[in-house]
Design a protein around this nucleic acid. Structure first.
Lengths: 343, 343
DNA sequence: TTGAAAGCGCTAACAG
DNA sequence: CTGTTAGCGCTTTCAA
């Protein structure tokens, strides 16, 4: 059986006061006699009254709805899940709630979700922008919706952005491999239309170029979505007539796919490996996996900090915050090539 | 610069029609001359109009807000993240959005989040109930908010519930170890006030009892929160004068903690291990980890299905859906005890 | 310290 | 097919 929700009117009647008095009590405003307030409180409890924020919001124009949206690539991905948790924690501190959405890296889905968020009048959005123009978000910004991008900048949009030093991280990973004697290094990466992926590839190329190594196209695979594709690509690269002595994988999923293919599959001999992104149990594998780690919680917390500053009236120029990555040497990246001697 | 949001009034004026015509066009209702509709559409586009769902909701009483809440223990936990993704996907199909919250297994925090959800008039809530009475949710149910519990049932609440066969899963894990010759089996588990944890422990005891083995209290550790605590407890149990030949860990975090302690720490010799919960790369460890796997995506999808059925008017008696677990033998659970011969 | 009146943006119900 | 009226539950403003 569904009861009617009590309104302020109902509470007012029950407490024998006016609607306004109830409003004041509900919102903790001063200027209500303690005695009256107590009576109202009692009525509220008795009727199970709860403020209708939709109605409230309607009248208090310009005031925040205390709701933000978080739009990530895929909330099931531990990286984004950790980021989400950090955002949620920050939101709680400000008494905000968080609407969540996964875009699957599809601009169309992203627009749909943003639209659904906007219809609910979110005060701000933290998003992982998909590839493609985000000009459509300008309209939201002009309506006062604050936007913060994470993981990658949005094309055609002026907004606060939190990213990591992807290029430098990849560069360091490759230099690390080269210091251990590698020259033939394979690259396994996600879709090139993702900015962070491009940056990582650029770092890869840059590091090789520093020792005048030209990357061999046969050892480079772009556009890998998910573990299975990455595993297949790894096999293809490693069974090349002149195989690489080391691999660089451009994100956690690709790294895991590479591990899948090297693990137990006969005919594939393990090579040195450095992966971008930290993942659980990387230290427990055999060999333990050397990674370039980002800190998703720090990224989320930073993004939330920027967002709430904006919501609270910060109108300074958009900022780009670049967080550092950290190379964690664990073993897989320190394997020497079969012939470590210069020829 | 922040523009004023256009209202239906503004659109009506711009298109030279009445407000009602705009409303009809916005909501795709029939009975508007195509020509008129086109004029309105143009005005909408030109003014960047977007419906205010708060106002809409206010007027359309009894109709859904198309928002549901998802309250999990910790969204950063891959198990819940995967579950969340399944819920989100189902929500999208129904054109709903999802508010998210983490309770950290605290009833107080849970109440706060539920209250925040309720103020925003969610149509339903999927929650992982913390320990403690959930009688307070009755009020929400009476107001028409549909509630579905996942992972464990809520105390003092009649609601749809989706759980797995925790007891049977644990029972099978222990019988599996016993079939491989183990009699002294250690138990490492999370807080006992969590229903699923109690069930798993019950399965542990039951399996031992079947061969008249009385669990040794010295090998049992309850209340482990997180990896670090689990690792410490593992060390304590394994350094017992008469150590166990096998361990059962009652969830993924505890399993990882146990692995931490057995990995490389000198003085600790690895023993057989079966863990509850699947985790990434369990198959790549040395030895690969035998687990009792649940399917978080299936749990989330099932919960969402139940919830949307309720939202769409299903008023049948509350259901409890029990999903099956699956023992995945990978190696760590098939290690024989040092002396495999019966004495 | 309390209350009455107006109206936020929208839709239900009815009228033309 | 289109428009008018009333009012959802709340806060703002002003008056008592």
């Amino acid at each position: 059986m569904v009861l009617k929700r009590a309104t302020m009117r109902d509470v007012a009647k029950a407490a024998g006061v006016s609607l306004m008095t109830v409003s004041r009590v509900v919102n903790g405003e001063p200027g209500v006699q303690p005695e009256t307030a107590a009576r109202v409180e009692r009525a509220i409890r008795r009727l199970g009254y709860q403020r209708n924020d939709a109605a409230r919001q309607l009248r208090r124009k310009g005031k925040p709805t205390q709701t933000i949206g978080l739009l990530v690539d895929d909330i099931a991905n531990p990286f984004f899940a950790t980021l989400a948790r950090a955002v949620e924690d920050a939101a709680r501190v400000h008494s905000f709630v968080v609407l969540i959405g996964s875009s699957n890296d599809s601009l169309e889905r992203e627009r749909e979700v943003i639209s659904a968020f906007s219809a609910r009048r979110v005060d701000g959005v933290i998003l992982v922008p998909s590839a493609g123009s985000h000009r459509f978000l300008r309209a939201q910004q002009e309506l006062g919706v604050k936007v913060v991008c994470v993981d990658r900048p949005a094309d055609h949009l002026d907004a606060d952005t939190v990213v990591v030093d992807n290029r430098r991280g990849a560069y360091q990973a490759i230099r690390h491999l080269m210091q251990h004697g590698h020259r033939r290094i394979g690259y396994l990466g996600d879709r090139e239309d993702i900015w962070a992926v491009r940056e990582r590839f650029a770092g890869f190329v840059e590091a090789l170029a520093e020792d005048e190594v030209t990357p061999d196209q046969a050892l480079i695979r772009h556009g890998l979505r998910g573990r299975a594709e990455a595993a297949d690509a790894t096999v293809a690269v490693l069974t090349h007539p002149d195989p690489p002595t080391a691999l660089f994988t451009s994100n956690d999923l690709v790294t895991m796919g590479a591990l899948d293919s090297m693990h137990g599959r006969s005919g594939i001999s393990p090579v040195a490996l450095v992966g971008f992104d930290e993942f659980a149990l990387a230290d427990k594998l055999n060999p333990p996996v050397t990674v370039v780690a980002q800190d998703p919680a720090a990224i989320g917390a930073t993004a939330a900090q920027l967002l709430f500053a904006r919501i609270n009236g910060d109108t300074s120029a958009p900022r780009e915050v670049v967080l550092l990555t950290r190379l964690i040497a664990r073993g897989s990246g320190e394997i020497a090539p079969p012939s470590a001697l210069p020829r």
